[in-house]
């Protein structure tokens, strides 16, 4: 903690200069807060206005008359191309896609991390490096063969196909998270458990998993944010009807049929962003931990 505007060590008088500096600091911080909040504010207020009011009023004005029509349309009536069912079916696609993909990739990451950190055999570190390397590739480099592979597996344009892609390319990160968590657990624990006759699975279930709650939360949040917000896989590997919510949102916004309904666009954008935003508000601490853990190597 470094603090230069408050009192220096020892008794210090509250000089007027310091107080002015303190005010300047708060004004600056406040202005930046406005900058970050402005888009959210504009999205919410626009979504609650009628089209008429949007055309006549100012971008940052509060709605004169609240209307939830745009929300209703965004959820169940807006057109993505030729279909006009709103975001609802695509929202559920994203749920159906994200839940299994998050669970499977987290579970695999836990098992892999446990092995690499605690059951080190020759070559394990090489395997870990190979997985780590996979975290860094731009997905464009696997997009074409993956599309063909999903076709050959009969999963082209399906939700299981998308789940598969997210699991395969999520393993690197989930393994990294769990491995870095499990290396901090002393290896004597495994040795002692082995002496007591516990095997590989027993040690995992009864000793390691119960210790892992914080890292499970971090990994689940990280994976959920990644998968829910994904657009590249969604747009490349899905077809009409199986698209995730991000792809549907983009289609609604760029659909050229009819009048441009900005209020519906904004309501749809909020709906698409709400789940990850909620996770962030509820578990921000873990969200940040995942970001920084991911950024140390990725």
């Amino acid at each position: 903690m470094t603090d230069f505007t408050a009192s220096p060590p020892g008794p210090a008088p509250r000089a007027p200069g310091r107080i002015a500096l303190r005010w300047l600091l708060f004004i600056l911080l406040g202005l930046f807060a406005l900058f970050y909040l402005m888009p959210l504010f504009v999205m919410v207020t626009t979504s609650l206005k009628s089209l008429e009011e949007i055309r006549s009023g100012s971008l940052v004005a509060f709605p004169r008359e609240l209307t939830f029509d745009a929300w209703r349309t965004a959820w169940s009536g807006a057109c993505t191309g030729i279909q006009c069912e709103g975001l609802r079916p695509y929202f559920w696609n994203s749920v159906l896609l994200a839940v299994p993909a998050v669970l499977i990739s987290t579970f695999l990451g836990a098992a892999n991390g446990y092995i690499i950190a605690q059951w080190n055999f020759r070559g394990a570190n090489l395997i870990f490096s190979a997985m780590l390397f996979g975290c860094f590739i731009p997905f464009q480099v696997v997009l074409l063969p993956m599309a063909r592979m999903l076709g050959m597996m009969g999963l082209a344009g399906t939700i299981p196909g998308l789940i598969f892609a997210h699991v395969v390319y999520g393993i690197g990160f989930t393994t990294l998270f769990f491995r870095n968590f499990y290396v901090t657990i002393p290896s004597d624990l495994v040795k002692a458990a082995k002496v007591d006759g516990a095997g590989f699975f027993r040690i995992f279930w009864s000793i390691f998993l119960p210790l892992s709650l914080p890292i499970i939360v971090v990994t689940v949040i990280w994976q959920f944010t990644q998968i829910w917000n994904d657009f590249l896989f969604g747009v490349s590997f899905s077809q009409a009807g199986t698209q995730p919510v991000t792809v549907a949102l983009n289609n609604i916004v760029n659909s050229t049929t009819g009048v441009k309904e900005y209020n519906v666009d904004m309501a749809a954008a909020i709906i698409a962003g709400l789940p990850t935003l909620l996770v962030y508000v509820v578990a921000g601490k873990y969200f940040i931990r995942g970001l920084t853990a991911g950024s140390v190597k990725g």
């Binding site: 504009v42 991000t246 949102l249 983009n250 935003l277």
Partner: peptide
Amino acid sequence: YPMALSMIVTGTA
């Protein structure tokens, strides 16, 4: 908080 949003949401806004 913007970091929690999809780039598609950010772009739309």
